[in-house]
């Protein structure tokens, strides 16, 4: 088990009487792209504000880089870069000046400015005023700001919010590159499931301040859910059922005239089809049904599948 860069123990938070977080247990392993997923109002932003020391930790414990946030706020922030929603750019200054100002505050070496500009691909636009920047460029400059102090951990709150598809892609590719080429651990919050699905290695799903799922993306697909289900109609379903279950296929409960089989990939569908045909059955219909993260997510947050996850996790 890799060491955790962020650990929360029984983190609870309330604004007045409204409970925002309940017993949140997060484990962000080092080197991961950790997707922090939840619908709007689930408590994502509150969690991030707590992680950055903007809100006090009233109950529970928060460890970042193995240090207690309550007592080592500055040390932790030294090793953490953050982009909260929209980057806070000073619009009257150029991209370079924004970085220089930030550099003075985090006391990074001067050479670091051109390095981060290179990383986010803004070297050519460094001397333009940031009010002329597109949203995607602003967002990348925001990430450059977060990178200045060369932190091990990047906390990005909805970094693709409001971007057009190409902007989203630029930012996503940047995030993946930062993780793979520069070894940064990235804590990525989003309500865009497709985003998390495309780059996260680990994820947590929260709703109403509670963790609903936490683990790797792989596990989420494999363990808890029917990710790829093949629906079959044959000339004799009873025989098909027997044949398939004898050959270690995983059959799922379904209605009488349709069989549902769990498959891993396309290849397996072809193999299965051939197998049935060779055994003298006629196949009338083969259709795959993929449940993507979007559906999983809605299921989870709608609490329909909640019991299912809990039981399968145990």
């Amino acid at each position: 088990m890799k060491p955790c860069i962020i650990e929360t123990h029984g983190l609870s938070y309330s604004f007045g009487k409204r409970q925002v977080l309940q017993n949140l247990e997060l484990r962000v392993p080092q080197g991961a792209i950790f997707g922090f997923l939840g619908p709007n109002g689930a408590g994502k932003s509150t969690t991030i504000r707590i992680l950055l020391g903007l809100l006090p930790v009233p109950e529970g414990q928060v460890l970042v880089h193995g240090q207690d946030l309550k007592y080592n706020r500055l040390d932790i922030l030294h090793r953490t870069g953050a982009l909260i929603e929209m980057p806070s750019l000073y619009r009257h200054l150029s991209g370079h000046d924004n970085l220089e100002m930030h550099r003075r505050m985090v006391r990074a070496p001067k050479s670091r400015i051109s390095e981060v500009l290179q990383i986010v691909g803004l070297a050519a636009d460094a001397h333009r005023k940031t009010k002329e920047y597109s949203l995607g460029m602003s967002q990348r400059l925001g990430i450059a700001l977060a990178l200045l102090a060369d932190p091990e951990l990047l906390i990005l709150d909805e970094p693709t919010n409001g971007l057009d598809p190409s902007g989203i892609r630029e930012v996503r590719e940047l995030i993946i590159r930062l993780n793979q080429a520069y070894g940064k651990t990235i804590f990525l919050s989003s309500h865009l499931l497709s985003e998390i699905e495309k780059c996260a290695t680990e994820l947590a799903i929260i709703d109403k301040g509670e963790t609903l799922y936490q683990g790797s993306l792989q596990q989420l697909y494999e363990g808890a859910f029917q990710s790829n289900v093949l629906h079959l109609e044959t000339s004799n379903n009873a025989i098909a059922h027997k044949l398939l279950s004898d050959h270690q296929y995983q059959l799922l409960p379904h209605s009488d005239d349709v069989l549902a089989v769990q498959v891993q990939d396309k290849q397996q569908v072809a193999t299965l089809n051939r197998f049935l045909v060779v055994n003298g059955l006629e196949v009338y219909r083969l259709s795959t049904h993929t449940q993507n993260l979007e559906e999983l997510f809605l299921n989870i947050t709608n609490r329909e599948a909640e019991k299912h996850i809990h039981s399968s996790k145990l």
């Binding site: 504000r49 950055l52 020391g53 903007l54 500055l74 040390d75 922030l77 030294h78 953050a82 909260i84 929603e85 929209m86 980057p87 806070s88 750019l89 000073y90 619009r91 930030h102 505050m105 985090v106 102090a149």
Partner: peptide
């Protein structure tokens, strides 16, 4: 106002500065 306008307080306070 520079800070209020550009969402700057959040950012400033999340820097490693007292």
């Amino acid at each position: 106002g520079i800070e209020h306008k550009s969402n700057g307080w959040k950012h400033l306070y999340s820097l490693p500065l007292p």
